[in-house]
């Protein structure tokens, strides 16, 4: 929809839009272009010599076992975060939607993890599971389960997944709750009159009606797991043990700033950009469909 009546001025709109355009040009388009250029270059660790290498950086990545492993790690990580996070928050939202009294209190108590910084979330969970002092790892040991995420890659992955899910649960919860509340009451009542009991009503009426929300959250959660969880991983495991929790973003950072492989890091950035753009396109295709529906 466009406005019918608009203001006329030859200079004002330019002046209004200028600050944003300057900022995004300087800190967005220029760096993105640089990433593209660098991904086709090779420079030594001191940045004294630069040469064009074409797609060599990409070829190297393709042949780099640790990069492919990082893809695998990212896939495991993001699918786990999305599936576990969505399931738990849907469960909570469905029950919160049933509550008449105290709904606001529950909501308040469930939304605050949204405010917690991912890095802090990582530290909190690290503290609970620290092999020497952690309360949970102690309890597990008492129960006969030896927890050590410093040595066991699966434990480390579980730890970062839990921290990431915990941090994201409030976001998912709010969207599911909003989705549930927008389902017309009359539909549920009609199903009840048709004799459907709560469990059946959920699977035949509520869940299908929620599918747009669920799909939207799925994409958002995958993007979240791809990018926003850097801080959780860096504070909880630093990618360890070994490289068992090195996700793609972590590797971009590590290769670019620790290993000083600018070309390789830039090539990884470009691949990440392609992934995000693909995810965004999927999401927009879907949103369009939803509008028609």
């Amino acid at each position: 929809m466009e406005k019918r009546v608009v203001f006329r001025s030859s200079w004002l709109p330019w002046a209004l839009i200028a600050p944003q355009v300057v900022v995004i040009t300087l800190f967005f388009f220029w760096p993105a272009a640089q990433a593209l250029v660098q991904s086709l270059q090779q420079s030594d660790a001191f940045g004294t010599s630069v040469e064009w290498v074409g797609f060599e950086n990409f070829v190297n990545l393709w042949n780099d076992a640790t990069y492919l492993a990082s893809f695998y790690t990212t896939a495991v990580f993001s699918v786990s975060v999305a599936v576990v996070g969505l399931t738990l928050s849907l469960l909570l939202a469905v029950f919160a939607d049933r509550v008449v009294k105290g709904a606001l209190a529950y909501r308040t108590l469930l939304i605050w993890p949204y405010a917690v910084a991912p890095a802090v979330a990582g530290v909190l969970w690290l503290f609970m599971f620290a092999p020497s002092v952690g309360v949970v790892s102690y309890t597990l040991r008492k129960l006969g389960f030896e927890w050590n995420h410093l040595l066991n890659g699966n434990h480390a992955m579980t730890l970062v997944v839990m921290a990431a899910v915990w941090k994201q649960i409030s976001y998912n919860f709010l969207f599911f709750l909003a989705g549930l509340q927008s389902i017309p009451k009359s539909l549920i009542e009609a199903a009840a009159i048709d004799g459907a009991r709560p469990w059946r009503r959920f699977w035949t009426i509520v869940f299908p009606m929620l599918s747009p929300t669920t799909f939207f959250l799925l994409v958002i959660n995958i993007v979240y797991a791809f990018f926003d969880t850097f801080a959780i991983i860096d504070s909880a495991t630093q990618g360890g043990p070994g490289k068992d929790t090195v996700i793609l973003v972590y590797k971009v950072y590590y290769d670019g700033f620790k290993a000083m492989d600018l070309g390789g890091s830039a090539a990884q950035s470009v691949i990440l950009m392609v992934i995000v753009v693909a995810l965004t396109v999927i999401q927009f295709r879907f949103v369009e469909k939803k509008v028609n529906y």
């Binding site: 990433a35 926003d228 971009v252 830039a266 995000v276």
Partner: peptide, 19 residues
């Protein structure tokens, strides 16, 4: 402006840092 929606700062940290 719309395109910038898609790319979080994390994917272009290196060059942005340089700027």
């Amino acid at each position: 402006i719309f395109i910038t929606l898609m790319l979080p700062v994390e994917v272009r940290i290196g060059p942005t840092y340089k700027v």
